[in-house]
């Protein structure tokens, strides 16, 4: 039940991020949408690892159920990758704004078409 609720929440958050990414014209808002999408995967990975009453898998520690640490490791890696991608996206946004004075992706398409 808890796991299903977490998956549904993650799916909802992902949908919000994807909607923002596909509908927003402002590059900053697109960056925020990318960040929201990344968060949804972290939520889903944590939900995938959930074991009711599960203990941390520490050597020498005895318990009836252990939690698989793999999804947590994957979540940490996904956070790092997401942060890297977001940093590049923001750096590109800054570079574009300095030259064109706008972060509206539709206006930038027109401007760059004229440049080429």
């Amino acid at each position: 039940m808890m796991q299903t609720a977490a998956y549904l929440t993650a799916a909802g958050v992902f949908a919000i991020g994807l909607y923002g990414m596909l509908t927003q014209r402002d590059m900053i808002k697109i960056c925020i949408s990318i960040s929201i999408m990344d968060s949804s995967f972290v939520m889903a990975l944590v939900a995938a690892a959930y074991v009711p009453g599960g203990a941390a898998p520490i050597a020498g520690f005895e318990a009836l159920r252990f939690v698989d640490p793999l999804p947590h490791a994957l979540a940490l890696t996904a956070i790092v990758i997401g942060a890297g991608i977001l940093a590049i996206a923001l750096a590109l946004t800054v570079a574009v704004y300095r030259h064109y004075g706008t972060t509206d992706i539709a206006r930038l398409f027109i401007a760059t078409r004229e440049d080429s």
Partner: peptide
């Protein structure tokens, strides 16, 4: 140094983000 490259890079990054999200899914 051409700023059009940054715009193209951003578009490629958007496409890559959706692609990466689906692969992770």
């Amino acid at each position: 140094r051409h700023p059009g490259s940054a715009v193209a890079g951003f578009v490629a990054l958007m496409a890559a983000t959706i692609s990466g999200a689906l692969l992770l899914f």
